Simulated scan of single mutants.
Amino acid sequence: MSTDRTYPGLGIAVCLFASAVALAVAPVFMPEGYSWFSHTTSESAAQGVPAAWIARLGFLLFGIGVLWVTVQRRDAWKRWATVFHAGFGIFMIATTVFSTRSWDPTVAYNPIEDAIHSVTATLVGFCFAFGVLLLLLRRRQERRNVRWVDVVALGATVILPTAMMLLPHLAGVFQRLMFFVAYVWYLREDYLFLAHSNHSPNS
């Protein structure tokens, strides 16, 4: 296997796993009143919240990991899918900089930062949905087997946000499921990158 491809591939996996761990443990350090059932990952990184840096680190690592895999997969993804997935990474990093308001109404917050966070978080979902859709359509046009992970990921971008709106008391659960799907999808693409490098003539 070519080390030029192995090291980036493993680095991407480590980055994504570290991000997932940070977001998974962040609720443990939240003050009383936070519930991972009803409160989102963004709220664990909210303005004025102690230990918000943990979730923000998770967002940062997620964005970096996605940008990294986008660079490695750009030839396979082609232009527009690459643009959307790069957008996912950029806007995910932006959520590290611009945080939402706290779930606690007594905590002061910057409304402009909160509004920017809403925009960047929405664009993260938009970019993921269209990035996956473009790849799914192109793979079908090329008469490749449709990957179940693409279908599940695309379905999740519609079903889970809808579920969050209809069942707000479980918004945290549904959003974390969305993150899980995204992690699995990007790790799958990273695996395909490694598998391709293993069969490369230069391996």
Rank of each mutant, 00 (worst) to 15 (best):
V132M: 03
W185N: 02
E189F: 11
V107W: 07
A163I: 01
V152P: 04
L133E: 06
Y186N: 03
G172F: 15
L137A: 15
V107M: 11
I116G: 01
P161D: 05
M165W: 10
A163W: 07
V146I: 13
M178K: 09
E189Y: 12
I116M: 03
N110Q: 09
V181K: 00
V151N: 00
F128I: 07
F128M: 05
G155K: 07
G131F: 05
A156V: 02
E113R: 13
N110T: 07
Y191E: 12
L136E: 05
R144W: 09
D150N: 07
D114E: 13
R139D: 14
A163D: 01
L134Y: 13
Y183T: 03
F180N: 02
N145R: 10
R140F: 11
V181G: 00
L154G: 00
L133S: 04
V173T: 00
S118W: 07
L134R: 08
M164Y: 08
L170C: 04
V151S: 07
L137S: 06
V152F: 13
Y186D: 06
T157H: 09
A163C: 03
V184N: 04
S118A: 09
Y109Q: 06
F180L: 06
D150H: 09
N110W: 12
N145Q: 15
R139E: 12
A156L: 02
V119C: 11
N110A: 06
L167I: 15
L166E: 02
I159H: 01
A163Y: 03
Y191G: 10
Y109G: 04
G125M: 11
V149G: 05
A108C: 15
P111N: 12
R143H: 14
P111E: 02
V173H: 00
V173R: 02
R144S: 13
Q175N: 08
S118H: 05
R143I: 14
R188H: 12
M165V: 11
L170W: 07
L123F: 13
C127E: 10
R144N: 03
T120L: 03
N110F: 05
V119R: 01
T162Y: 15
Q175M: 13
L166S: 12
V124G: 00
L160N: 00
G125N: 08
C127A: 12
V107N: 02
